[in-house]
Design a protein around this nucleic acid. Structure first.
Length: 623
RNA sequence: GCGCCCGUAGCUCAGUCGGAUAGAGCAUGGGAUUUCUAAUCCCAGGGUCGGUGGUUCGAGUCCACCCGGGCGCACCA
């Protein structure tokens, strides 16, 4: 439950029915407590008001409150009696009658069911149609929120394992921003770690100058993959790669030497530093191209190298404060006593670790941006790491640490079709670019096979549609899954263009556009004139009510950082629209009915488009 | 060994932090197009929610134990 349940005037005339009803319930419960029926403290109120929700089934009304049953025992009353008491107080709450029909008798063991007045629904709908924010209120307490996501290692080509952080992080950033927060996105590039040591070692021992001249990115990628195998020296990997095996035989100390190259870079060795500066633009050009194609942008690109100058001071400070100490030649923060493994912040060879960078980064962000939240959109396998880093940061006693919420927004591992995870360090996974190409190609094939209506699309339009649909399908497949569960990567599944997919909603948007194109409707004029909306048919009412829940859904997405709540709702919304569209003529309707249906179509199109936009998914006019 | 996560329809998954007869999609079977894009809509079959106990008005959801699977646990990130 968030701030939106607080009483208060609706922002900009926008109505959030659930928030309005919660504030009525709050008044009812306050009265209950004041009259001594049941004692209630202020801090348990949010959880109780959370029990005001959309009903499971429309036959029970639009919203229901279930807290009476939970409170009955404490009140020493029968659940139904207490529910009736609450319902009576609810009906008398200020503004209740403006929005809702009288609650009536409690149902079952004590459900208080509420239905929105049709006039209130029509009025809210007509305001939403004329509102650039589509009736969405947004948060009443804007915060500064840092979203740390994507963060690939620039030394190696991006692959499918990077897609979740990128897509989920981008969607969350867009949604939080739309909610009214000040959002700062930061791509914390891995541009300073061991993987650069591998490239440096590879460059010095087995580079191919011609290949580098022809395609620098590919050559650096080759070096990374090759040296990684040589350094790890796993027999089964070497057996499968003769080139790596012969190098490993020639340089048995390769693993140590790679770490030494990394340490030299960190110490400011001129040669390694110069090579790093030469490689960086090559690496950036590669990932920039992919971000452009994904339409993902960042406010900042503060990679590990940016924080490198702060690392020594970070370690010194933690040592000086008695939080960190030497152990087996390394330096670590002992968080769980002397026996449990510490959080290492400096290796025995002097090099720093990613925990060091993470701690320095927290300090810098607190000093610079003073955020109230920092979100880390990172694979859930790193949950322990973040627990430790957050714990260490709190003990560190940084300025502002008490006021910041550090959140690891974890997500399930990307698995291959064989059910095994894509290992970050594994050699040959599906490249991200190849994945996007395949998605677009499959979408293009569907378009070519399509009905005559699509034959009218110009070649340029077809390319654009294929790109939008193909990449949208890939993003949507990822976002529509509960973020905490593992995610099986499957071309066939994500590129299927029927059912619960982005294409279904993009198609609904295109059909809305079709109506306005065919009817030659002036949508701006329609929005200004949409003052007399009438909701008559059940399909219209269901659609209208659903449209007005946009703000509720975004609030819920923020509460748990779960974009799949938005995808589910959008899919339901598109389904309601399709049902409505199938049975209710719009252009052939007349008078107020036609105007009302046009208003519904206009708002549906814009809500779907905006919702997809918040997921980072594009739409097209025709498809 | 310690810690975290998961087990729901044939398949892939939702399930609003305890609420009403457990929902979608795909697949299967049937139906709808003189009408705004059929990439659509409507209908049907399909379930001991891994198992056993417990907590209570109520459990897929919370607790305990068991079965089965995944991940992490000091010098990679």
């Amino acid at each position: 439950m968030s701030d939106d349940g607080q009483p208060g005037p609706p922002a900009g005339g926008r109505v959030d029915f659930r928030a309005a009803l919660r504030s009525c319930f709050r008044a009812a419960l306050d009265g209950l407590a004041a009259d001594g029926v049941v004692p209630l403290t202020a801090d348990e109120m949010p959880a109780l008001l959370d029990q005001v929700r959309q009903t499971a089934d429309a036959k029970f009304g639009d919203y229901s409150g279930t807290m009476a049953m939970a409170l009955a025992k404490r009140a020493g009353r029968k659940p139904r009696d207490l529910a009736a008491d609450i319902a009576a107080r609810l009906a008398a709450a200020p503004t209740y009658a403006d929005f809702f029909l009288p609650p009536g008798d409690p149902v079952g063991p004590g459900f208080i069911n509420v239905r929105v007045r049709d006039e209130a629904l029509a009025a809210a709908l007509s305001r939403a149609v004329s509102d650039p924010r589509l009736g969405v209120r947004g948060t009443e307490r804007p915060e500064t929120i840092v979203v740390d996501f994507s963060s690939p290692n620039v030394a190696k080509p991006m692959h499918v394992g990077h897609i979740r952080s990128t897509v989920i992080g981008d969607a969350l950033a867009r949604i939080l921003r739309f909610r009214g927060h000040r959002v700062i996105t930061d791509n914390h590039l891995g541009d300073w770690g061991t993987q650069f040591g591998m490239i440096l070692w590879g460059w010095k021992h087995c580079r191919d100058d011609e290949a580098f001249a022809a395609d620098p990115t590919a050559e650096l990628g080759r070096l990374y993959r090759l040296v990684r195998k040589v350094a790890d020296a796993k027999p089964e990997e070497l057996a499968a790669d003769p080139a790596a095996a012969s190098l490993a035989a020639r340089y048995p100390e390769a693993g140590r030497e790679v770490l030494a190259e990394t340490a030299k870079l960190h110490e400011g060795d001129p040669e390694n530093r110069a090579l790093w500066e030469r490689f960086m633009p090559v690496c950036r050009a590669e990932i920039d191209r992919l971000y452009a194609r994904l339409h993902v942008t960042f406010d900042h690109w503060l990679g590990e190298s940016f924080f490198q100058p702060m690392l020594a001071a970070t370690v010194d400070d933690l040592v000086a404060r008695g939080l960190a100490r030497e152990s087996r030649g390394a330096i670590g923060v002992f968080l769980r006593g002397d026996d449990a493994p510490p959080l290492l912040i400096r290796k025995a060879d002097g090099a720093f670790l990613y925990a060091t960078t993470d701690l320095a980064t927290i300090r810098w962000r607190l000093d610079t941006w003073k955020p109230s939240r920092i979100l880390y959109v990172v694979d859930h396998r790193q949950s322990e790491h973040f627990e430790q880093v957050f714990d260490a940061a709190r003990r560190w006693g940084l300025s502002g640490i008490a006021d910041v919420d550090l959140v690891h927004v974890g997500f399930g591992t990307v698995l291959g079709e064989d059910g095994k995870p894509f290992k970050t360090r594994a050699g040959d996974t599906v490249g991200l670019e190849a994945l996007l190409d395949e998605g677009v190609e499959r979408a293009r094939q569907v378009i070519e096979l399509g009905a005559e209506g699509r034959a009218a699309l110009a070649a340029e339009d077809r390319r654009h549609v294929a790109e939008t649909v193909g990449i949208g399908a890939i993003k949507y497949a990822d976002l529509s899954q509960n973020r905490t569960t593992d995610y099986v990567f499957s071309f066939d599944k994500m590129l299927q263009l029927t059912g619960n997919t982005a294409a279904y909603m993009q198609y609904a948007v295109a059909r809305v556009e079709g109506i306005f194109a065919k009817g030659g409707i002036d949508r701006d004029a329609l929005r200004v004139a949409a003052t007399e909306v009438r909701i008559a048919e059940p399909a219209e009412r269901a659609l209208a009510l659903d449209l007005l829940r946009f703000g509720e859904v975004l609030e819920d997405v923020e509460a748990d950082y779960r974009p799949n709540l938005l995808t589910t709702w959008l899919y339901d919304l598109a389904g309601r629209y399709s049902s409505f569209y199938d049975t209710h003529p719009v252009l052939k309707a007349e008078g107020p009915e036609r105007a009302s249906r046009l208003a519904l179509c206009d708002l549906t199109g814009r809500v779907l488009r905006t919702g997809l936009e918040l997921l980072g998914i594009g739409t097209v006019e025709r498809m």
